[in-house]
Every structure is written in C-alpha cells, then in structure tokens.
Design a protein around this nucleic acid. Structure first.
Lengths: 142, 142
DNA sequence: GTTCCTGCAAAAGCTTTGCAGAAGA
DNA sequence: TCTTCTGCAAAGCTTTTGCAGGAAC
C-alpha cells in the first residue's frame, strides 16, 4: 500500500515537472492504472471508471494516456495488433499473453544475459519482449 | 538467388498442403514479401505491386496475408501500434526499429541464453523481441 | 485572467464483411 | 463442375481532431 502511495506521489511530481495539469480525470486514470495492473486497453479503463465518473469520455482517456506516454510515465504494449494496452510499470520486463484466456502476465528478464548479434553501432533505447502461449491455468482446463 | 527460389517452392508446397489456392495475386504477394525484406505494411505491398497488377485490391492483400499468417508462413510484427507489418522470415530473430528513419532491422538472438523468471509452468509457443533506438546511419547524420 | 483540459460530434485510418462475377482445381 | 478467390462497396473499430465551454493554475 505504502509503495503505491509513493508511486502516485512520484507520478504527480513528474506530471508537474512535465507541465501536465493534475486534473481530476487524469488522476483517476493514473489511479486506475496503478490499482489494476492488467495492462488495460482504453475500453477497460473506460468501463472501469464509468461508475465513478459517468461523464468521463474516451477522448480524455486517450489524451491522458498520450500525455503520460510522451512523459515516459506509462508504456504502450503492442503485443497484439488490434489492441493498444498501457502499462504503468516502466522498468524492463517481459510480457506473456495467453492465447487461450487472453490474460497478460509479467515476467522478469535479465537483459544483460541476452546474446544478440547484428546491433553493433546501434543505440538501443528500448527493449520489448512479448511471449505468447498457454498459461498454467488454461493448461489445467484442457 | 537459388535459396530464394527454393523458398518460393517451399511456400507453394505449404500452400497446397494448407488448401490455399495458388492464385496469381497470392503468388505475387508472396514474391513481393520474398524479394522485399523490409517488413512491409499492407500499404507498401499495395504500392509495390500496383504497377505490375493495377487491378489488385487491398482486400485481396489482407485476405492473402491473413491466410498466410494462419498457416504460419508469414509472421505479423506489432512493433508499433499504428502499423501492422508482415515478415516472411519465420525463424526466431529480433527486430529493431529506428525511431529516426523508421527502418526495421533484423538481429540475431540466442533465445536459450535469456535468463527469465516467472514463466515456470507456462507453455511458450512464441517469442517476439522488439528493440528501438537510433540506427548507425541516423547517428552519423546527427 | 490565462492557459490548458474536457467531452461532444465529426473525421480519419485501418481492417473486415457481404456479395456477384471470375478463376483455380 | 464445384469450390474458392477477387475486388468493389459498405460497414465496423479504434484513434484523432475541431471546438466551445469549463477547470486548473
């Protein structure tokens, strides 16, 4: 709990330093991302906040997520081509999508262990790793 | 050259075994993918084939690519959320996108070297690796 | 008091679908 | 001949844009 609060404080400070105003809507979107670590789509965020803020529009959610992404506070997942997902966790880690239930799991990666060839002279800013397959829960049900 | 021809023969055989008819349009799309290893979008394939086959429609390109993807003959890249790209190279390798020029480079990965945690009990069928940053060509121009 | 943000409606892209005629097997 | 494919037009989705009123600073 306390690290969640710390994270939110951290975020609002970063918003201020990026000249992004702390509107009610934006704070709620951030809170949603922080409390629901399911790599949600815009639709999921919209549905999740609709009861609490019935007037919230998808335009605002898009606007918020774009602003947060530009500031580096949120990362975009492009694990599937028909759904843009958002992740408030910005440190290097991998994502696994279960093709049966659709759930996305985080996994830890030691990026330094990776043996690669063909990127000499390239400046790498970003490393995304997307795996897919069947999760243990779905394997049981087969 | 000879390995390209070998690849095309390989592909037509796979198409036959998947009950996908070898129409003129489909073979041309495959030929384009084989000769232009730029991880093209539908738009690029369309533009690239338009002079040769003016009647070719995007619907057919979509249809072809979906059929090829389902058969595992082509892989979809979701390195960027606003563009679906297609790759005729289906063996495990990484993709690097230069954020300056937009070009996508292949790189070689030793998947066995990767140290990961949190996927015990998961059945992994697919591993995608998307890096981004600046390519050497664009770094020179800075 | 300024400046930026919200949310509606409309527009813009990309991809899929329905279907009649055409082509592959 | 039978089945599948093509390509047009239309529809379906997701995301962006224009803009007037409203909220943040």
């Amino acid at each position: 709990m306390s690290d969640m609060r710390a994270k939110m404080e951290d975020i609002t400070n970063k918003l201020k330093s990026n000249n992004i105003r702390l509107s009610h809507q934006r704070l709620k979107v951030l809170e949603y991302l922080d409390h629901n670590r399911i790599h949600p789509t815009v639709e999921q965020i919209y549905e999740g906040l609709h009861d609490e803020i019935p007037t919230l529009s998808k335009t605002t959610i898009y606007n918020t997520l774009n602003a947060l992404t530009e500031s580096g506070l949120v990362k975009v997942l492009t694990i599937e081509d028909n759904e843009t997902r958002y992740d408030i966790r910005t440190d290097a880690h991998g994502h696994f999508k279960c093709t049966a239930c659709g759930e996305i799991y985080d996994f830890e990666v030691n990026m330094d262990s990776l043996e690669i060839q063909g990127l000499n002279g390239f400046r790498v800013y970003n490393r995304d790793m997307y795996f897919s397959g069947i999760c243990p829960k779905c394997m049981e049900q087969e």
